[in-house]
Amino acid sequence: MNNETNMKKLTLLLLLVSLFGYAQVDYKGLVKNIEDITIETDIETHFKGVPFTEEYGEIKFSDERFLRFYGVFVDKVKINTSYGGKRITMHFFDEISDYNKLKTKLTELYGNPDVNERSSSTYYEWKTESKSLMLRVSTEESLFTEFDELVVTLFH
């Protein structure tokens, strides 16, 4: 019994020593999932702790350490709120795997997209009552060359 109490004290002591050894930023705690944003979300609260810039009412986040969309690293995200709703424009790291992963994920969630193929780009669009998701890639002879952007529009 006595032994166990001493063990508990020792554990607490050791725990405190390790905890206060080095104060660091809680990087994991700052990771924000952009797919969780809804029309009601207060953007500054959602991204609390993450640095941003604001210009002409558009909020921009550019630190990829904290930005994820369905687990994919987001390079930059711009968020515009207007009377019509919220427009979230995301840029990724131009990886074909990111594009494939997101296209698969969005198809799984919202069904097959409307595809609009043009000479040098392809648009994929998923639409529901409350949102639209438009994925745009540059192409050359229908083959992926660049992941341009993904624009999510949330309606009122």
Binding site: Q24, V25, G49, F52, S62
Partner: peptide, 11 residues
């Protein structure tokens, strides 16, 4: 960042 806090990055 531990010393000064997080700040915006510039490319």
């Amino acid at each position: 960042e531990a010393e000064k806090g997080l700040t915006n990055l510039n490319n």
